[in-house]
């Protein structure tokens, strides 16, 4: 009896120790990644980083990559947000019981974790190649193609949050509006989407945070550019693609610039995450 009791107590303590150890391992990796990014990123941090372009190499900065990333990410969100909100609204308000709605919701969850590199190949096949064929090669890789590839990554995030946020709203809200004779489109746009607004905005911010670090799909859509791009149909540099290129360079000075870029992306992603949390908490307060 005593032996069994002690063994069970021992197994229990062992499990607690191992679980605590795994948490510490996870936190250790996080601390190491954040610390290394901060320490190595600060080395090359400075004015030249945002004033000089990548054509200057080791003496240069990341100005064109920063501007490029901002443009491509904003274009991607501008494409994905309206479509995503519309699709999410349809799922929550029109198709909550239909089989097609269930199928699309299910497939959207799969798209959410689909490999982004294949989405880049998809845009290469349906945007980059046809545009190159139509323009006889004058336009091939473009910022627009990059934005479309990123939009496909942002879309499922926005669809899902919109769907979830709308379904959280009390049905009395819908019934009250409908009983006043308000048509469905007005109910949706002026009552429901407004009530779920802060939640949906959270989803858009989280989608943007995911885009900021996406690299693989940009390689064969926006490509890269050592100078400022001339427009949305020109090849455009982006921070992640430039970091990828600089990391593969043997020159340590390039690595320092890559780390500075990595630090920028990390700070941007963390700031967006905090902003999203703040919006979400504010939204909850208002509902209560």
């Amino acid at each position: 009896m005593i032996g069994l009791y002690h063994r069970r107590a021992f197994v229990n303590v062992l499990a607690i120790l191992l679980a605590t150890a795994s948490t510490l391992i996870g936190l250790g990796f996080l601390a190491s990644i954040l610390w290394i990014t901060l320490a190595r990123g600060l080395v090359a941090f400075g004015m030249p980083l945002i004033t000089r372009i990548t054509a200057d190499g080791a003496q240069g900065g990341l100005a064109n990559a920063i501007v490029g990333s901002l443009i491509i990410d904003c274009m991607a969100i501008l494409i994905a947000a309206p479509l995503g909100v519309m699709a999410g609204t349809w799922l929550a308000e029109y198709a909550s019981r239909s089989r097609l709605g269930a199928l699309i919701r299910f497939m959207n969850d799969i798209l959410l974790s689909a490999p982004s590199i294949v989405l880049g190949l998809f845009i290469y096949m349906v945007v980059v190649l046809p545009m190159s064929a139509w323009s006889n090669g004058a336009v091939s890789f473009s910022a627009l193609a990059g934005a479309l590839a990123l939009a496909l990554i942002a879309l499922p995030v926005i669809v899902r949050t919109t769907d979830e946020m709308l379904r959280l709203l009390p049905s009395t809200l819908r019934e009250a509006a409908l009983s006043l004779g308000v048509p469905q489109w007005k109910l949706t746009t002026q009552v429901l989407l407004r009530a779920a607004g802060s939640g949906i905005l959270t989803g858009v911010l989280l989608a943007l945070a995911r885009l900021a670090g996406e690299t693989a799909p940009l390689l064969f859509t926006a490509f890269g550019n050592n100078f400022m791009a001339h427009g949305p149909l020109d090849k455009m540099a982006s921070l992640p693609a430039t970091i990828y290129q600089y990391t593969n360079d043997p020159d340590p000075a390039m690595h320092a610039i890559a780390w500075a870029g990595a630090l920028m992306i990390t700070l941007f992603v963390l700031a967006l995450g905090m902003l999203a949390r703040w919006f979400l908490s504010r939204g909850h307060l208002r509902h209560e």
Partner: peptide
């Protein structure tokens, strides 16, 4: 209302189109 519902549905079908398109284009 009809137009509104149709355009929302079209956006939702886009999700299926992306998955199918990614598979077929590659």
């Amino acid at each position: 209302d009809r137009w509104f519902a149709h355009s929302l549905k079209a956006a939702a079908l886009l999700v299926l189109a992306v998955l199918l398109g990614a598979a077929l284009s590659t």
